[in-house]
Amino acid sequence: MCFDQLALTLAAPGQLVGVSDVARDPLLSPRWREARALPAVRMRIEEILGLRPDLVLLDAQAPAHVAALLRRAGVAVVALREAATFAEGLARLRDVAQALGRGDAGRTLADDLERQRAAIVGEPTARRPLAAVWQANGFTVGAGTMPDDLLRLAGWRNLAAERGMGAFAPLPLETLLRAAPDLLILDGASSERPSLAEALLAHRALRREFPGGRTLVLPPGQWLCAGPQNLDALRQLVAARRRIGGVP
């Protein structure tokens, strides 16, 4: 999914013949408009082969038999690991560009993103306020994830990382309230239709304890995957830190 974003950013017009279906979700994917112009595939080999690609960018965590079958069908496969930090994200960007034969464009974009990051983040701050991420069903995001790295870069401490919780782990509402983070980061509604998972984010206790000023809504698409959109997330996180943390 994340490589769809990078490929959509870097590929020359007409170079992509298909993206994964999640790339078309406006909440998860900042480039959903471009994605919708292309055929969508799920993790089905028949669908992928049906598009007759020369190259398939595959998540390294995809089932091994998928890559093996694709290779036997004569398709080149580049398996990449998802980026868990901003720096890894830049490396992955270069990898994807290389695979697409657009190494120069990749390097230029990566250098540009790194420059912008430095400008946004500024000098390291002494006081690092506490942030907690709370998503549908009460899940939080811990160490070893892109959001955790972006929080750190923006001068925040991540509650889940400090508690040694897993990458994606449930955080009970009570525990969240007791920890009293300075900022609560929620994700936006995933559709116009309601769900209990998201209704939980409007729990009375949360509304009372975290009035508007102490919450930030970041759609998952902005910071779950590596890509230029990470800079928007970073900007918002830094702005929130300056507003709440009180330290310039």
Partner: peptide, 21 residues
Amino acid sequence: LSPNPYAFYEVMFWLMGSLAD
């Protein structure tokens, strides 16, 4: 039928109730 991606997994709540949260 709900377009919400979480909805499908909430069948558990409705058919095997809960008082959490």
